[in-house]
Structures are given as structure tokens and as C-alpha cells.
Amino acid sequence: MRIPLSSCLGIALSLASFAPCRGEEAVPALGFKEVLDTSGPELKPSARVLALAGSRVKLVGFMAKMEVAPKGAFYLAPRPVACDEEGGGTADLPPEAVYVVVRSSPGEEIAYTPRALEVTGQLQVGYRCEPDGRVTHLRLILDQPQDLLGAVPKH
């Protein structure tokens, strides 16, 4: 069964658009141009990404259209992209793509949406083998709606 992204993200995205409550710090925005350090011969996480590891961040991008979509997650890329994984794995993904884990829909295929998305969650950096065997190096663990309820201003 495919879960529409609007079902899993709709509440979280609408709650995330509220201004932070008094005393709560704003969530830093991370741009895709800031994700990788390209100054050397190999790609590696930027100093900003390493500094934000473990923190909540906001990222805006496009869901990658995958031939074989991960369960309970999707890849967020800086531009619209379609991946043909046959024989190439995730080689069609831009190197700065981030694996987004949708905790409210574990094990479910998240339905593709072509529109730009703003996601907020905890940034994780480092090698990890996901349950389906995919290897990820940058992950955003998406906030669940109940995580944000304390951040909604009361009127």
C-alpha cells in the first residue's frame, strides 16, 4: 500500500510553518550547496553539515522519483530527478541527495510527489546500512506531528 506523502507530511509541514514559540530557537535552514565539501579530490560532508549533525534542520528540495522506492523513506534532491536503478543502484541521484526517513510510515512506500518539499528533522551524518540494504551517509529523520505539537503557538 502506498501512503500519500500529504498524509504523512501534511500535518508536520503545516505545523513546521508556524513561527517558533517565544524562547524556542528557529530551526536552521540547510541548503544543498552547503551539504558537501568539494574543495578536495573526494566528496565529504561540509563543515556546516558536521556542525549541524544531531540537530534539527530544515531542508527544501524535490523527492527523487525512484524505480524501486525505499520503504518508509525517500530521497530529497536539489532538483527534480528520476532514477533508473537497474544495475546502477542509486547512481542517478545527485551526490548531495539526502535520505529522508518518514517515522510516521515505517515500512510503507511513500507516494511520489513532484512538487518542492520543505522537511524538518534531525540531521544524521555517517555511514549506515538501512534495513533494506541501502547505504546512506546523510539522513534527515523527519519530525513526527506529535514532536511538533509543543512548538505550535497557542492562540
Rank of each mutant, 00 (worst) to 15 (best):
G107N: 04
A73C: 09
L15D: 10
C8D: 08
P20S: 04
S14V: 15
L59T: 04
P4L: 08
L142F: 10
I110E: 01
V119N: 09
G54N: 09
K33C: 06
V49N: 02
V119H: 10
L138M: 13
L9V: 11
R56I: 05
S17R: 15
R2C: 00
D37S: 00
P114I: 08
V57N: 11
P70G: 05
T113L: 11
E108A: 13
E34W: 00
L36N: 05
V49H: 02
F18Q: 11
A26V: 05
G121A: 04
T38I: 07
G107L: 03
V57H: 08
F18W: 12
E67I: 02
S6H: 10
A47V: 09
S105H: 05
P70H: 01
G10L: 13
G40R: 02
I11S: 13
T136F: 00
D143K: 07
S7V: 15
K65D: 12
M63K: 10
P114R: 10
P45C: 06
E108Y: 10
G40A: 04
L93M: 05
E108V: 10
L13Q: 15
V135K: 05
S7A: 14
P131F: 04
C21N: 11
E96R: 01
L5S: 11
A116Q: 14
R128L: 10
K44L: 08
E25T: 14
V119F: 06
V100M: 08
L9H: 15
T38K: 07
P78T: 04
P45Q: 02
I110R: 03
S6E: 14
V57R: 09
E86W: 07
Y112A: 03
P131E: 05
R115H: 15
L149D: 01
A151I: 00
G88P: 01
G150Q: 13
I141H: 06
V81Q: 01
G88L: 14
L123G: 03
P4T: 11
C8H: 03
A53I: 11
A69V: 00
E42L: 08
Q124T: 04
Y112H: 13
L140V: 14
F62V: 00
Q122R: 13
P131R: 03
A69C: 00
Q122C: 05
S105C: 15
P28S: 06
L117D: 12
D84Y: 12
G133V: 03
G40L: 00
A51D: 14
D143Y: 09
Y112E: 01
S39A: 11
G31T: 09
K33E: 15
R79T: 13
G72C: 06
K154T: 08
L138W: 01
E67M: 12
L15W: 14
G31N: 11
Y112L: 02
P95K: 06
S17Q: 14
S14M: 14
F32M: 09
L148Q: 15
G121P: 03
P28F: 06
R134P: 02
P114K: 10
E96T: 03
V57S: 09
E108F: 09
G107T: 05
C21K: 15
Y127E: 08
H155R: 09
V101A: 07
V135N: 03
A64S: 12
A77W: 07
I3L: 15
P4S: 11
E34T: 01
